[in-house]
Structure formats: C-alpha cells, structure tokens
C-alpha cells in the first residue's frame, strides 16, 4: 500500500478532482430530478451522504468476509437497509421535506454512485480510507446538488433556501424549476467545470515542462 495516496487525498478528491456529478457524471438522475430548490438538493445530498458513508463503513469492515460471488447482492442489501432507515427517519422527523422529495428517497438505492463506490473502493480499502472516500464523494455530490438547486431556485423562484432575494418586480423564470431547467443548469455547470479543469490541467503541464 506504499503507493496509495494519503487519507487526506482520498477524502478530498471527491469534492473537486473526481466530483461525482461534474466529473464522473454519476448520480445525475437525482441531480436533475429533485434540484428545483436549494433545500431539496441539500436534503437529497444529506440523505445520500448518510447512505453512502454508512454502506462504505460496513462494506469495508466486512470486505474480507463477503465472498466475491455474492458481493453485489450483499452491497445492495446493505445499501437498501440504509435507504429505508433514511426514508423512515425523514418521514418521522421532517414530514414536509419527505413529501417534497417523495419517491426519490427510495430511489437512492439505485444511485450508481453509491454502489459504484462500494465496488470500486470500499470493498478494496481499509476502513478509514473507505469512510474518507465516501465522505468526500458524498460531500462533492451534495455540493453539486446544492449548486444546481440553488441556481434553479434563484432564477426560477427568486429565492435561495426559501429566502426571497429580489423585490416584487422580479418575474420568476419558471422554466428553471421545471424539468428542462434541470438539464439547462446541469449542462451549463458541466461546461464551466470542464473548461476550468482543462485550463488548470494545461497550467500544470506547463509547470511540469518548464
């Protein structure tokens, strides 16, 4: 394990360099579907964080006990359990938010980001690394959802986290909180992220060559 990056790198990579939504393009379904407001994006991100960190923790802990042939099934059982726990807790403690997110909480089970991290990382790495990786990826996912949700809410409802930003004269751009707004916002953000990444990669290369 000498050439493995440190715990800090494994954690931080999910935020920016390997951001699940903007770079890996995973978990796009919830990123489009529930992000009509910043709070919904945040809630979806928080629920996914809980599921991802919890599943990675268990998968990494039992990684040597789970036979290879049934690993995917076992991962799914673990993930589904966490999702149901999140679903019931939201229903019990924040019924309004649960109503708002509706069926999408249950659909976290099929978010490929979560199963992907189990298969690609948690099942091959020691516990602290697995949890760090999960927390970083989940953090990056949550930030992406809040960004998409925030932009759509500001343009489509004229508010941010429910706080009105503009005066009465503001005419909301309603399409932004409807499904097409999700595609538009995500597309623009992807362009921005890709071009920023390209530029910083070029700068790194120049530095290496000089």
């Amino acid at each position: 394990m000498s050439n493995q990056p440190g715990l800090y790198e494994e954690t931080i990579k999910g935020i920016w360099r390997e951001n699940p939504v903007f770079v890996q393009m995973l978990g796009l379904c919830p990123a489009l579907a529930v992000t009509n407001s910043a709070i919904n994006g945040f809630a979806m991100g928080a629920a996914s964080t809980f599921v991802l960190v919890g599943s990675s923790l268990l998968v990494s802990m039992f990684r040597n006990l789970i036979p290879k042939q049934v690993r995917i099934t076992t991962f799914i059982i673990i993930i589904a359990t966490f999702v149901t726990v999140a679903d019931l807790s939201l229903q019990a403690f924040t019924p309004l938010l649960h109503k708002e997110l509706g069926a999408f909480i249950a659909l976290i089970v099929v978010n490929c980001l979560i199963l992907g991290r189990q298969e690609a990382f948690a099942s091959r790495n020691r516990l602290p690394y697995a949890v760090g990786d999960a927390a970083g990826m989940a953090g990056g996912f949550t930030i992406a959802l809040i960004m998409v949700g925030g932009i759509r809410e500001i343009l489509g409802s004229g508010s941010f986290f429910g706080v009105p930003l503009f005066g009465d004269n503001f005419e909301p751009w309603v399409i932004m909180i409807l499904p097409p707004g999700g595609f538009l916002t995500l597309g623009v953000l992807l362009i921005v992220f890709a071009s920023v990444k390209k530029r910083s990669d070029k700068r790194k290369q120049v530095r290496l060559e000089s």
Partner: peptide, 24 residues
C-alpha cells in the same frame, strides 16, 4: 453470508420501523 446480511438488515429495519412509527 446472504442469510446473515438479510437477518441483520431485517433486525435493523424492524427496530427503526418500530421507533419511527408513532412519530409518523
């Protein structure tokens, strides 16, 4: 392995269900 995973998952789900049901 699958039996144990299912068993633990079931236990967790039942206890969370019982705990949250009155609130829901």
């Amino acid at each position: 392995t699958l039996g144990l995973a299912g068993l633990f998952s079931g236990l967790v789900l039942v206890s969370v269900f019982l705990a949250t049901q009155p609130l829901i």
